[in-house]
Design a protein around this nucleic acid. Structure first.
Lengths: 217, 217
DNA sequence: TAGTGGTCTAGACCACCCT
DNA sequence: GGGTGGTCTAGACCACTAC
């Protein structure tokens, strides 16, 4: 059919996608094995493997040894989000970024923080709250608990001039993390900071990374 | 150093990760080229390539022909979200899922919908609103505009028994989409549906796929 | 146990693009 | 021009697991 003179894994990937979308291989059905497809496309099995691996990464097919490759019954919508540094996010909107540190103190964290981090309740932690502005309009309120033991040298950082968001991303390598989104009503103090009506809906991003946490509003 | 008897791309991947995290290769620096690393690890260049491609996919390094592989100055936090079918999301929480169709009519969509879809304003569209429940508690309100021209056969579907969410995922293959999250205050009608106080903050997911849209609350 | 995907190799050619 | 990553090949061995 589609004689593509170039046997690139991309062209094979597209062709497989087409067959799945057009129900030539309906959901739940078994695809031919790699060797057969390689013969059909006139290429090496490795090339077919690359194309099919891409489909599996996208959540379109399920591949298992011995069982073969099967079109997923319920294709997973997989979304990739890039979480940039807040300053860059503001600047990408062609707005001027400004940052103000509101509070910096070493104290004990509330139980909900320590328990989520799996840390002893009596560990002293660094608590930072700050505001980010875009063109002088309140953009984001940052409320962050940091475990100093996990980030050597953090005591010496002057967070009046550098945002914690930015400093940590560049200076605290992390190996993993967790993120959650939610919505809540702003209490009076927060609403005032954001120059929003009391009780306004705010978008909340909760993050935990490695040994440090960073709840943001 | 780390003599790993197994030269798998995974072990190389981990080793490269370690060197980046420990600042052996600081942000902005140039990594050795593939051939050199292959020699160091005693494996084929292909294997190193696989490991480094994984780093690039994760947004940790920037790879360019001739320019080499460079550690990103500002590592991108890349998050992958899986958007499941609502029924499965409820059932994963060990709750019982229930679904009710509130409204189904063919009518003209408001301008904000047609303009975002790039559709003529006088195109008749299918408008569905429905509720999803988890253990009889309101879980999610679904408000969806569908372009019937893009989904053949949709007129015949009985959305009283099948949720639009589920039917579309299984029957309307799409090639791309867009998604956005936000927060808003519920108006009185919505608050009532969700059995929440008037003005409560709700989490909003806005989706557009291919030729159909699906705003959800 | 046999068929499938997962991976590795050694070699090759090419596209790109910095110097 | 020449070095770098991108990709393809043909072949091989292995891990897993459905049968």
């Amino acid at each position: 059919m589609n004689e593509l003179e170039t046997t690139s894994w991309r062209s094979i990937h597209l062709e497989l996608l087409r067959r799945i979308n057009e129900r030539q291989w309906p959901p739940g059905s078994l695809l031919p094995n790699e060797a057969d497809l390689a013969a059909e496309f006139g290429c090496a099995r490795t090339t077919v493997n690359r194309a099919m691996r891409e489909l599996a990464d996208a959540g379109l097919v399920d591949r298992r040894r011995r069982a073969g490759t099967r079109v997923m019954l319920l294709p997973i919508s997989r979304v990739v989000l890039d979480i940039p540094i807040i300053r860059l996010e503001v600047e990408q909107r062609h707005a001027q970024w400004r940052y103000t540190l509101l509070e910096r103190q070493v104290c004990l964290a509330p139980g909900r923080i320590t328990s989520r981090l799996g840390i002893e309740r009596d560990t002293p932690m660094l608590h930072l709250t700050s505001m980010h502005f875009a063109d002088n309009h309140p953009f984001l309120h940052e409320d962050r608990w940091i475990n100093p033991a996990a980030v050597p040298g953090i005591e010496a950082v002057d967070f009046f001039t550098v945002s914690a968001n930015e400093w940590l991303i560049q200076n605290a390598p992390y190996t993993g993390g967790d993120i959650a989104f939610s919505a809540m009503n702003a209490d009076r103090a927060l609403a005032e900071l954001l120059a929003a009506p009391d009780g306004a809906a705010v978008f909340v991003v909760d993050r935990i990374t490695w040994n440090k946490t960073e709840p943001i509003t």
